[in-house]
């Protein structure tokens, strides 16, 4: 074997090893979801943990469905996540556009304040935020009410704008040729027309990246919905995971539940994968 071939083999071996490292947790999850608890625990200490061997069945899936209203929770999560992602892309991209292309008083200070929010952990503002949303009015299908607890809006609105997404758009917009914007303005385009006819079409990969990052944050929400939802009507999937942690923990059902709730994430990621990779390659942003 010559040196080139040897190095190619080594490279593929290394890549295969790294790929397996990332794939094994998913394989473990899916395989374990097919095993009874006792077998799952016994297999976990050996390579059998990654093999669909032994007493294999779909019982964990049917038991998980019986234990938890999975459909309801997945719908809640998808509704909250989808609306938040859409609103977030709209608002954050417009905010970033303003910071990059418009001139207004206090811009630098305002941008600094927004970027400073990046270093504030959510846990530190959770309680004050809870107090705020609990005292906000809302007019919905049930009429006027005070307080947003136990609703979709309480899980959506506080998350529609955030420093990271705005920063992501700002970085991307800065690299776009300003001449295009100036030419459009000379031709009489309004700022909003410049935004949606020039900037948005050019920023597809950035939108995809922001969408995926926001999707993951929202779909994995735990603490906030835990504090603000009081009924299963609005409870999302991650809070639902806690249903399985009883005195006698049903590990197989947990793996089945995780397998089910991972499907929307995988579907969304795969649908945006090409744009996501293009964006990472162009901006150097890592999730």
């Amino acid at each position: 074997m010559n040196t080139d071939k040897r190095s190619t083999v080594m490279r593929y071996l290394l890549l295969t090893w790294v790929a397996l490292l990332f794939v094994f947790p998913v394989v473990f999850m899916v395989v374990s979801s097919l095993k009874p608890d006792m077998q799952l625990l016994q297999d976990s200490a050996s390579f059998r943990a990654f093999l669909p061997v032994g007493d294999i069945s779909l019982d964990n899936y049917s038991n998980a469905w019986d234990r938890v209203p999975i459909g309801r929770f997945v719908i809640n999560s998808v509704v909250v996540t989808a609306i938040t992602v859409i609103l977030s892309l709209f608002l954050c991209s417009m905010a970033a556009f303003s910071f990059v292309f418009l001139e207004f008083r206090g811009k630098a200070v305002l941008l600094s304040v927004i970027l400073a929010t990046l270093i504030v952990p959510f846990e530190t503002i959770a309680i004050p935020l809870l107090m705020v949303v609990n005292n906000l009015p809302w007019i919905g299908f049930d009429g006027f009410q005070m307080g947003w607890l136990d609703s979709y809006q309480v899980q959506i609105i506080p998350w529609v704008a955030d420093g990271l997404t705005i920063f992501l758009f700002i970085q991307y917009f800065k690299d776009l040729p300003r001449e295009l914007v100036e030419a459009a303005r000379v031709d009489g385009a309004s700022w909003f027309q410049v935004f949606y006819k020039i900037i948005v079409p050019l920023a597809g990969p950035c939108f995809a990246t922001a969408a995926i990052l926001k999707f993951l944050v929202m779909y994995n929400q735990y603490l906030w919905p835990l504090m603000t939802t009081q009924s299963e009507d609005y409870r999302p999937v991650m809070v639902g995971l806690q249903y399985f942690f009883q005195l006698d923990i049903a590990w197989g059902e947990i793996m089945a539940y995780l397998s089910i709730i991972t499907v929307p994430v995988l579907a969304f990621y795969l649908s945006m994968q090409r744009a996501f990779i293009a964006s990472i390659a162009s901006t150097g942003v890592k999730g």
Partner: peptide
């Protein structure tokens, strides 16, 4: 869910609910 029940109660108490 039991694992997060106490946190839910404390949050409800803070918001008077």
């Amino acid at each position: 869910p039991q694992e997060s029940y106490n946190e839910s109660v404390v949050a409800a108490a803070l918001s008077g609910k």
